[in-house]
Write a protein that binds this DNA or RNA. Sequence first.
DNA 1: ATGGCGAATGCAATTCGA
Length: 262
Amino acid sequence: MKIATWNVNSIRTRKEQVKQWLIDNNIDVICLQETKVIDNDFPVDFFTDIGYYTYIYGQKAYNGVAIFSLQPLKDIKYGFSEILSANIVNNFDEQKRVISGVINNMRIVNLYVPNGNSLGSEKYEYKLKWLEILKQYLTRIKHKYSEELLVCGDFNIALEDRDIYQPKGKENHIMASTVERDALKQILSLGLTDIFRKFTENGDYYSWWDYRQGVFSKNRGWRIDHIYLTDKLYKKAINCYIDINPRKLTQPSDHAPVICEF
DNA sequence: ATGGCGAATGCAATTCGA
């Protein structure tokens, strides 16, 4: 069984590429981020035509997450609000960044973590608060349900120096700062482990490359798209890798998909 | 550090991403 995560940077622009990739790679479940479309305009037929059940949670122009699965998912939860009380969630479900569902006693949580712009900015404060709410969300899910957890998506955080092409001097850089890394580590302390690192210890493996300055051809990227697993799943996983081939196509997403195999 | 690229909105120029 293959479960993938991919920030597609607009599903309407990328629908052909995503469809072909799903077929070519025999993907059972895919978690998408930055679909950038309201639910009514989502090209669902495109994917139901090739056998996928589609679960979408989008908004106009920005953000948006979705899960496609060859088997139907159970117990879909949209946003934080179906898990956490309104006074905790506040207005943090206005941006559509969280969707979750269950397959084979595994709860999949698909996330699009805010980018944060730059340290000290309003968006940075939003990112840190959002991560606090995420920690409460995952804590609640872990205690409320018996399922194993797979938490994946675009985290907009490179956890370690080996996850960045040029880590030197990035202690206060967005996506690499000590504060962001500590926030993510706190969340992972709930019992989640980066499955990519079970199979690959070296650096130079990235999942995002800026569109500008031809940095992809020089492999100057960041590994910010992750799949985290609870212990039983971590032991069961037989592979995890990044497929950089879609990033080589004409008009690509700036992110490449990450795949975990069980 | 900047924002040169790309997408959405909406039809030109701006906002946002990372």
